[in-house]
Nucleic acid binder design. Structure first.
Lengths: 221, 221
DNA sequence: TCCTGCCTTAACCTTCCATTAACCCCGACC
DNA sequence: GGTCGGGGTTAATGGAAGGTTAAGGCAGGA
């Protein structure tokens, strides 16, 4: 049986959703503000979380960012009355998996919750190292919720480092995995690493890309 | 956090396992056939691999044999519906570390995976001597919880000493293991040992690196 | 065609590290 | 007491590894 968490401050709407889910034999906890929701998330294990953006105390985007930072990758469906593109993007950047604009049909909510709760197999497409998230499928990466501007090669390097984290990757292996059998015969890797660092370790955030002289490079705290 | 690979062609079972592991905050990649699995094994670093015997394209035993031949000694748990002794033996011959007969309890799978990931089959990746910890995989060492700043050679020397601890290592063997066939023709070892001691035996902590005059060096309390 | 983004290259600078040789200490032995 | 050898300590050196910057080339889109 599905076990969901709804974080929503509109008590009427919340009651409606919880009741409806109950008819479908779906269990659903409820929190009315962001802080209470986050506490429940950390205490229990849910198959999916339905999260309103406009919340008292801690808004939905921050709740999502916080739980991802804590290493919890339960699927999140964002709920909002505003349907602006900006909000949609913000939602995805903070780590949401799906998005629903109010008003919505109950059936749609249920369908999406079930779909998200189910597809969670296959290969890991989301790597996380500290507050750095790498979405392999979408080819996007975020540090502290901020999107990084990465060239294809830089992204590939980051992906390799993330998959091996926290172990270091030798220069040779890194080149093999990024370029395959005909690597460039110059210091191209150094340049890419330099550019990658400018993105990942910018803004005074603690450096995540470390070089172990004579050993290789490691992505870790 | 554990990082596992599951190679299993039954997609329902795979999804179940991946989901379950996720609940335990264990990361798990998935491949549905032997060839894909082997590719992932060579590309990434896992703490353990859960491997079905009956697989399309390349069966589990062959996958295991191939990865061992490639020098990868990640622990392997074999999964099979058949519980005949013959299969069991075949599994161990091809280099598996553990064996699980379907159907099995999830708890058991997790327990075994965690156990194996800890004590790595071939090479031990985490050494401990008194309050000194050496993480070979991450190339990190800690004394009393404090990280040590070691050059590659110093780390290598420490690793050798730790692997032999508490037995002493002769000067000759130490040089052989660190430098191979062309050792430096000076007192380089002495200097490295000196620097190593400055890190390991600093801060008034009781000395762990001992000199046995005319015998060699030992790492012990 | 030009523009733009991206990769590669090369040059140059900085930091790190292994090696070396010199010197010191101390106990054993003559 | 002198000297010899094993071991410990120190600082200088050169070279390798890594970091930084700018310029050229190539491809795809406008």
């Amino acid at each position: 049986m599905l076990n969901l968490l709804l974080i929503e401050d509109d008590l009427d709407l919340a009651a409606t959703i919880v009741d409806y889910l109950e008819l479908e034999a779906i269990n659903c906890d409820h929190a009315a503000n962001g802080v209470a929701g986050l506490a429940l998330i950390q205490k229990h294990t849910y198959q999916a979380i339905i999260l309103d953006i406009n919340l008292p105390r801690l808004n939905g985007l921050d709740v999502c960012t916080a739980m991802r930072a804590a290493g919890i990758d339960t699927p999140v469906i964002m709920l909002t009355a505003r349907d602006s593109l900006a909000n949609k993007l913000e939602g995805f950047e903070s780590g949401a998996d799906d998005y629903l604009v109010k008003p919505f049909a109950m059936e749609e909510l249920i369908a999406r919750a079930q779909a998200l709760a189910k597809r969670r197999s296959g290969q890991v497409e989301r790597l996380q190292v500290a507050d750095l998230r790498v979405d392999v499928r979408e080819k996007k990466a975020f540090r502290q919720g901020r999107p990084l501007k990465l060239s294809p090669t830089a992204f590939r390097i980051l992906e390799v480092l993330a998959r091996h984290s926290p172990a270091p990757v030798s220069r040779e292996l890194l080149m093999q995995l990024v370029w395959g059998d005909d690597p460039p015969d110059s210091n191209s890797l150094k340049v890419h690493l330099f550019n990658l660092r400018k993105q990942v370790d910018a803004d005074g955030a603690p450096a995540l890309i470390h070089t172990l002289s004579g050993v290789g490079f490691a992505l870790r705290e």
